[in-house]
Design a protein around this nucleic acid. Structure first.
Lengths: 157, 157
DNA sequence: GTTGTTCGTAACCACTCCTATTCCATCAAC
DNA sequence: GTTGATGGAATAGGAGTGGTTACGAACAAC
C-alpha cells in the first residue's frame, strides 16, 4: 500500500482524517440503508473506505458511544445507524471523534514576570473559543443526508 | 524542564502552538514599542515566552516572509513590527505560520468502485472549506492590539 | 579590515499522535 | 459446541512538533 498518494495532502497543521473516516462510514451506511441493507459489517465499510477494518471499528466505537450508531453481535451481526441520516450533523460526528482544542497553548508556562506572559493565555483562550464556535456552527449546518446527496451529485458531474 | 506542566493541554486534535507563539511574540513587541523600545532580539522575546530563541527565530522568520515584522542586523540589531499593531489581524498571523488544511482527507484513495468512495472527497471538501472560512472570518476580527488590550486587562482582574 | 553581536539554518533528539496490523477474548444465533 | 464478527490490547512504523546545539552569514560600529 503506497504511503502517500494523490488524495493524501496532510499539510502542516492538524490534518488527521478521523472526521473524514467517520463521515465516510456513516454516508456509506446511509446509502446502504436506502438500498434496503441496514446492517453492515466493519469489513464491508472498510472496503469502501479502503482501509483496515480495525480503523473502522475504532471510529464506529466512538460513534456508538455518542449514540449515532448501534452494533449487533452474534450471528447476523454488524452496524446500523441509530438515527436518520438527516438527524446526524457533522458537528455531532466531529464531537464524537475529536476531543482536544484546535489551537494549542504554550508548551511551557510563559514568564510570569512579564505582563504579556501573565495575561496572554486567557486573552488567547477567548479568541480561540470564538473561532472554534464559528467552525462548529458551520459543521452543524450539514448532515449525513446532505453529504450523501452531494456525493451522488459530484460523481456524475 | 518538565515535559507536561499545567499549561500544556494538547488534546487529540491539532494542538500545535505555532499561532500562540507568534501572537505572543507580536504582542510583546507591541507592548515594548508602546514603551519606547521598538527593537528586540530573539533572546528577549524568548525570555517572555519562556522557550528557546531558535523557536522564536523560526516563528519570526515566517512572520518576516509574510511582511508582518522586519529584522535589522549588524550592531543594534533585532526585530521590529512592520505594521501598526491594530493593522495585524490574527488571520494574517495564522496564514503566516500555518499552511495545511484543518481536516485531513483519506490517507489512501477510497474505493473507486463504490459510489460513496467515488464522490465523497469533493463533497467533504466543500463542507471543510466552509468551516475553515468561518474560522478564518473570526480570526480576522481580532488584531494584535486587541490581544494586547485583553492581555493587560486579564492580568489585573 | 577587524570585531562583536545577532540572525538563519541545519542537524539531531525526545516525545506524541496517527495509521496500520496482528492476535485473542467475547458474544449471540444456530 | 460451532461459527462469524465484534472489541480491545499490543505493537510497529511514519510524521509532526518542540527543544537543543552548533556553525556560518550578515551587518554595523570601531
Amino acid at each position: 500500500m503506497d504511503l502517500c498518494n494523490l488524495s493524501c495532502y496532510k499539510g502542516g497543521m492538524a490534518a488527521n482524517s478521523r472526521l473524514t473516516i467517520a463521515v465516510h462510514a456513516l454516508t456509506w451506511m446511509a446509502l446502504a440503508q436506502r438500498r434496503g441493507q441496514s446492517v453492515m459489517t466493519s469489513d464491508q465499510i472498510a472496503a469502501s473506505i479502503n482501509t483496515n477494518p480495525v480503523i473502522v471499528r475504532r471510529s464506529l466505537g466512538d460513534l456508538r458511544r455518542a449514540g449515532l450508531v448501534q452494533v449487533r453481535r452474534g450471528s447476523g451481526p454488524g452496524w446500523s445507524l441509530a438515527r436518520r441520516p438527516n438527524e446526524i450533523s457533522l458537528l455531532a460526528v466531529f464531537n464524537a471523534v475529536e476531543d482536544g482544542p484546535l489551537f494549542g497553548m504554550h508548551h511551557t508556562e510563559p514568564n510570569q514576570g512579564c505582563p504579556v506572559g501573565r495575561g496572554i493565555q486567557p486573552a488567547l483562550g477567548s479568541v480561540y473559543a470564538r473561532a472554534e464556535t464559528a467552525l462548529r456552527r458551520q459543521l452543524r449546518r450539514t448532515t449525513i443526508e446532505d453529504v450523501l446527496g452531494q456525493t451522488l451529485t459530484h460523481q456524475v458531474g
